[in-house]
């Protein structure tokens, strides 16, 4: 089996995503859940990087406008930039809500969220 970075990175990023989702599914503490979400988001970002084929290509900053081959695909980089910012935003909002929730109820445990139920 060929263990180059190119083949390992997708598997590694997928592992991070699923590990994060596993954390979201099983953890009870809200802070830990947000940490897990961040892990999953990092995995997604790595997945986008792994698509660019960066092992063979150069950084897409052109020295000469006429030579445009041999560089990596810039679009996934642009998408990651967006998804990083959105991930940060989600984490910040989630933590703020958690802070306020903790202040009101004194708990961080999701299983104790019983204010709303059938």
């Amino acid at each position: 089996m060929n263990l180059s970075l190119e083949t390992v990175l997708p598997a590694f990023s997928l592992m991070l995503i699923l590990l994060g989702l596993w954390g979201v599914a099983t953890r009870k503490n809200l802070i830990k859940i947000f940490i897990s979400l961040s892990i999953a988001e990092t995995g997604v970002n790595l997945l986008y990087i792994s698509m660019t084929g960066f092992v063979h290509g150069k950084v897409p900053i052109l020295a000469d406008p006429t030579v445009t081959s041999g560089y990596v695909d810039p679009l996934p980089h642009a998408m990651i930039l967006t998804s990083i910012v959105i991930g940060t935003a989600v984490t910040a909002l989630g933590l703020a809500l958690t802070a306020r929730y903790h202040e009101r109820t004194g708990t961080l445990n999701v299983t104790k969220m019983k204010e709303l139920k059938n």
Binding site: I17, G20, L21, V24, L30, I33, L37, A40, E41, V44, I86, V90, L93, G94, L97, T98, R100, Y101, R104, T105, M113, E115, L116
Partner: peptide, 21 residues
Amino acid sequence: DTTASLEGAIKYLLAGSIASI
């Protein structure tokens, strides 16, 4: 800003974040 609304918001955020992943 009631406990119920914060709880709803957190649940919404968790569901939505999983959807976006």
